[in-house]
Design a binder for these strands. Structure first.
Lengths: 96, 96
DNA sequence: CACGAATGTGAGCATACCATCACTTTCGTC
DNA sequence: GACGAAAGTGATGGTATGCTCACATTCGTG
């Protein structure tokens, strides 16, 4: 049972990486152990935890979280700050 | 503000697709509008909502959710049922 | 029914993710 | 400091994702 990782907001890849790492450490697992249980490569676990790659595949992330007895929940976001709104306007309609 | 989509568990790609679709419809946006705002292709929005592809890129999903004023939260999963445990044992250590 | 808007589908191509292997660096313990 | 385990890095190659364009289908309204 997770105790420290409880309803942490996940807005970025880095958030997700930190969350996975936290869950893994709470269970006392090594990266290799997590990789084996989730059926992914250890290399991939590292890149996920460090947020080195922007486009990690969602299905693999979900498999890892399931193995870690963690769960994602989707809900309304708290109202953004004025600063966040300004940034959002800057990137409005932009293609990356 | 989202009203219907509130803290829905997301365990599979299909869950995510349904969640995104729900958030989009609550805002009254078309797929094309969502795609433009999030900077992704309309084709991709469709495949995400229908869960046609297992490995959608997490960064794009997060961008879409941000645009939709939705948020993912990571927390402990409720204890799995006996049936879920049996299935998990079947696939223990399996590579896909 | 007719019409338009929204949604869904197919093919082709570029890109980047991921697995594997080997190696290096960090960390903890003695 | 020495040792081993864990964590991190680099390169390579296969492959699936995602973008674009064009077309088909469904849906809602008059």
């Amino acid at each position: 049972m997770l105790t420290f990782v409880t309803n942490v907001p996940v807005r970025t890849i880095a958030d997700m990486g930190a969350g996975v790492r936290g869950c893994r450490l709470e269970k006392g697992w090594t990266q290799a152990e997590l990789a084996a249980r989730a059926g992914v490569s250890r290399r991939w676990v590292i890149t996920l935890e460090k947020g080195q790659v922007s486009g990690v595949e969602l299905s693999k992330v979900l498999r890892v979280l399931t193995v870690l007895s963690a769960e994602l929940r989707l809900g309304p976001a708290p109202a953004p700050s004025a600063e966040e709104l300004a940034v959002a306007r800057l990137y409005e309609g932009r293609r990356w």
